[in-house]
Amino acid sequence: MDNLFGRGGLEVPEPLRRFLQGESDPSLRVEQYQEADTLVVRVDLPGIDPETDVDISVSDDSLHIHSRREENVDHVAKRGYRSELRYGERSRSIPLPRGVRQDGIVATYEDGVLEIRIQLPERSESPTTKIRVVRTGGREANQSSGGPENLVT
């Protein structure tokens, strides 16, 4: 579709072009991975001021990222204006493991990339509990040895 708009000489209003090319998705795209006991979340956010255009919060065991990027109105008014950059508001919520402490979260912004490092809580190995399934009704249930046994082993 880019070829149709870019080389075909077809004048398409910017909002329509963006919609047709799938740029109306309101969510941020993230890269996420774990380094030892740290969860790393990276978001490409070029052309923003991280102090005013990004809000990061934690609630309900989720990391919430919200960003804004405004289009330069001086550029929009110029003849032949075309932009393939993403503008507007975008957000994303990422589930966190239970027990993450807010003082263990650090966000940095460098070269257009927002990086959030989250200290993960220590995981205590909880013992596995096996639950026995008891058949009710039918021939096998009537032949069972009476009372219920210890169902948790």
Rank of each mutant, 00 (worst) to 15 (best):
R79E: 01
V30A: 02
E23R: 14
V40M: 12
R135T: 12
V58W: 09
R17S: 03
S59P: 01
V54A: 13
S91C: 01
Y81T: 08
E122T: 10
Q119R: 15
Q119H: 13
S24T: 05
R132H: 06
R18L: 10
K130I: 03
Q102N: 10
P46Q: 09
E89T: 07
E122M: 06
Q102T: 14
G88Y: 02
G8A: 15
S126G: 12
R123M: 08
S93Q: 14
A77V: 13
G47N: 13
T38H: 12
E125Y: 07
D111A: 07
R101S: 07
E23N: 13
S62H: 15
R7S: 06
R68V: 14
I65A: 02
D61F: 00
S83T: 13
R42Y: 01
G6C: 03
P26G: 05
R117G: 08
G137C: 11
V100T: 13
L96A: 11
T108V: 14
E23D: 15
T108G: 12
G8F: 15
V106K: 15
V133A: 11
G9V: 07
Y33V: 11
P13S: 13
P26W: 01
L96G: 10
V30R: 00
G22M: 05
S57F: 03
D25S: 13
K130W: 02
G112P: 08
A36C: 00
D74I: 02
Y109C: 00
P127E: 15
D44L: 11
G104V: 06
S126A: 13
L45N: 00
V58R: 05
R86W: 03
I116Q: 03
S62Y: 07
R92P: 00
P121R: 00
D55S: 14
V30D: 00
G22D: 05
R123S: 09
L16V: 14
P46Y: 10
E14T: 10
Y87W: 07
Q32S: 15
S59C: 05
G112E: 10
E122V: 09
K130P: 00
P95I: 02
V43H: 06
V58C: 05
R92D: 00
R117P: 06
G88F: 02
P121K: 01
